[in-house]
């Protein structure tokens, strides 16, 4: 039984897809089905707002999540009303999404439900805390989105499973490259700066951090408004902190200045990086150091070799090549006959 045992070592797990139709929901169903619900209490939600049964873009079917008895789940009012499961309503939160308020309930029998939960990172964190505190949930599972449209970052979870596959590209090499890059970003080291938690609360701007952790700035309101050749100095041992996105423009600017390249560059989490693999690797090779305030551990990859338009890739080759590159367990959950 792949990676299920490993999951039990963590309190929060997110399942993120690199693209739509990468089989994220299948992976989630697979995990939920295999967890020994009797011994641990599981809570689940989704950060996607797109909870439709049929994928609106590609018209392929989007499965509902099957929950076993005892699982605590959070979804929107709309999807709660449409549930096909006997469940006990535990709480209605003040937070609203486009599909209504968030509703938390406990499954009283096995059944299906569509999930649509918190839409921001802060609200996702609140969800985790509230489930752990109020309902003694041992493992919170987040059905996450990695697209830049999603404001809720799956990086708040301790562990992550990444779903990839033929919907990224029809070329295996291309899939492997893209997936390996994502794995590389997820693997960026955790910053050792003092006061990590307080830094997370900063919402805007680019800041400098002194040797002893004192925060100065913001030196720019955002990477978009900074001057092309702005000058700023940071003492030895200091760092630069970006609250928003790491853009190509910013990375190019600091990579030409050896004085700055030596400094630690801190971002909130790996989802904030919007630079090409070549540029990032070039920067790291030059000796640049990029760290994150929130780090998640990638414990497995799942692949879906079927593209939305029906083309099927060689699953074994895809798995082998991915494993060869990222050195993390890779599974094709459907192909290997793991029943869902």
């Amino acid at each position: 039984m792949p990676f299920i045992e490993e999951i039990l070592n963590y309190g929060t797990l997110s399942i993120a897809g690199l693209e739509k139709n990468t089989g994220k929901t299948e992976s989630l169903n697979y995990i939920l089905n295999r967890l020994t619900i009797n011994s641990i209490r599981v809570g689940v939600t989704s950060t996607g707002v797109d909870g439709e049964r049929i994928d609106q873009v590609t018209r392929t079917s989007k499965p509902e999540i099957f929950l076993k008895e005892g699982v605590v789940f959070t979804t929107s009012e709309k999807h709660y009303r449409e549930r096909k499961i006997l469940s006990e309503l535990l709480d209605i939160s003040d937070e609203t999404t486009s599909l209504g308020r968030l509703v938390t309930a406990k499954a009283l029998s096995g059944g299906k439900v569509m999930l649509s939960g918190p839409v921001s990172t802060a609200s996702l964190k609140r969800w985790i805390i509230s489930l752990k505190k109020r309902y003694n949930v041992d493992l919170c599972i987040i059905d996450g989105a990695l697209s830049r449209l999603s404001l809720a970052s799956p990086a708040v979870s301790e562990a992550m499973i990444l779903a990839t596959g033929a919907s990224l590209s029809l070329s295996i090499r291309e899939i492997v490259n893209k997936t390996a890059y994502a794995a590389e970003l997820i693997g960026l080291p955790l910053s050792q700066i003092t006061g990590r938690e307080t830094l997370l609360d900063y919402e805007q701007g680019i800041w400098t951090i002194g040797r002893d952790g004192e925060v100065c700035g913001p030196i720019f309101e955002s990477a978009f408004t900074m001057e092309k050749r702005s000058i700023f100095r940071i003492e030895d041992g200091g760092a630069i902190y970006l609250t928003g996105a790491l853009t190509e423009r910013f990375l190019k600017m600091i990579s030409t200045d050896t004085n700055l390249t030596e400094k630690e560059l801190i971002i909130k989490d790996f989802t904030r990086i919007f630079v090409t693999p070549a540029l990032l690797r070039n920067y790291l090779k030059k000796g640049g150091k990029i760290t994150v305030l929130q780090k998640t551990k990638l414990i497995a990859l799942t692949v879906n070799p079927i593209s939305p338009n029906g083309y099927t890739l060689d699953s074994n080759r895809l798995i082998d090549e991915l494993y060869g590159r990222v050195n993390i367990p890779v599974y094709d959950i459907k192909k290997n006959g793991y029943k869902i």
Partner: peptide, 11 residues
């Protein structure tokens, strides 16, 4: 609350 649990939950 027909079962007399006096917990804020409902079905």
């Amino acid at each position: 609350d027909p079962e007399g649990n006096r917990i804020t939950s409902f079905y």
